[in-house]
Simulated scan of single mutants.
Amino acid sequence: MKMNTIKSIRDIPLHENIYPGTPACAGCGGLLSLRHCLKILGGNIVIVNAAGCFTLLSVYPYTPFRSSWLYTAMACAPAGAQGIRDALDILIKKGRLNPDENLKVVVLTGDGVAYDIGLASTSGALYRNVDFYYLCSDNEAYGNTGFQASGATPFASNTHTTPAGKMNPLGELFYKKDLFEIWRSHKPPYLATISPAHPVDLINKFEKAKHYKGPKLFINLSPCPPGWNTDPSHSAKLAKLAVDTGVWALKEAVYGEISHTIIPRKFKPVEEYLSAQGRFTHLFQPVRQEGVISQIQSFVDQYWKGIQG
């Protein structure tokens, strides 16, 4: 199978499917990646958006997108995607739609939908092998409703529903779900994790995914300045630090076979990533929570130890 490999950010296609100046929180890591995703997917797409942060991008009668857009409730974006996919396929089969006018179907969600509310309809679409792209902007909480804990919230993170304080001194102590493995258990053709700090890796994964028919997942770690309590100008730096510390593994799976696309030569301490975010301040002030910090470092070390043998 011949695939085009992009080696430099300058090689990214110039097609723009989203207008400059798109409304979103300043420094949104999800929007940084979305621009690249839509560049490589091109203009012949229809976006099926489940309620979330990105819903605010396209508010009738205004939209920043040049492509089609369908808004759905949080639980049913993959079902909406199947309806569109089936309609396109039937029209083409009946000769009522030229195959050149076929569209890629792209589901666009946040982690609250991807990890929690939308899992049932997603599992159904995976089971039926619906041909669509699924892009999850993972800011690790329910972002546009006030940053409440979700199934993607990491261990010991502060959120507005699990605030660190006298009643909960260590923050949220649930473990983040492994959405990559949840999808992989369904045996879809292609899965990947991506980052706004590694656009070339991101683009090459979308280029590769074009060659597979069926469900295709992309999970983007999306720094959220208001939720993570960080400076908007630091989002790309934070996204890179997540990879450099090993917290966010950049990988892909083709029919279940996993490979890591970027592995740091030397991992930075996880503490560098945690201490740069206000949502983890309680781990360092007023009393340093050494046990919790060490436990988070241990989670990361165990993952990479399993990968590297």
Rank of each mutant, 00 (worst) to 15 (best):
K7D: 08
K7T: 15
P23K: 09
P23F: 07
G27V: 05
G29Y: 05
G29F: 12
L31E: 06
L32I: 10
L34Q: 03
L38F: 02
L41V: 04
A50M: 02
G52I: 07
F54Q: 00
S58N: 12
V59H: 07
Y60W: 11
Y62S: 09
P64Y: 04
P64T: 06
S67M: 11
S67F: 08
W69L: 05
T72G: 06
M74S: 13
A75W: 08
P78D: 09
R85Y: 09
A87D: 05
I90E: 06
I92D: 02
V105I: 15
V107Y: 00
T109I: 12
G110Y: 04
G112H: 02
Y115R: 09
G118A: 05
S121I: 01
G124V: 04
Y134I: 00
L135S: 02
N139Y: 09
N139F: 09
N144E: 11
F147N: 15
F147I: 08
F155T: 07
A156S: 13
A156G: 11
N158S: 12
K166I: 04
L173R: 15
F174Y: 10
K176E: 13
K177F: 13
D178H: 01
F180M: 11
E181Q: 11
P188R: 03
T193L: 12
A197D: 02
H198C: 02
V200N: 08
D201H: 13
I203W: 02
I203T: 11
K205M: 10
K208R: 14
I219M: 11
D231S: 12
A239N: 09
L241C: 10
D244H: 04
D244L: 14
G246F: 09
W248C: 04
W248T: 03
K251P: 10
E257K: 15
S259V: 08
K266M: 13
L274D: 03
L274H: 03
Q277R: 12
P286Q: 10
R288L: 14
Q297R: 12
V300G: 08
D301K: 13
Q302A: 11
K305S: 14
G309D: 13
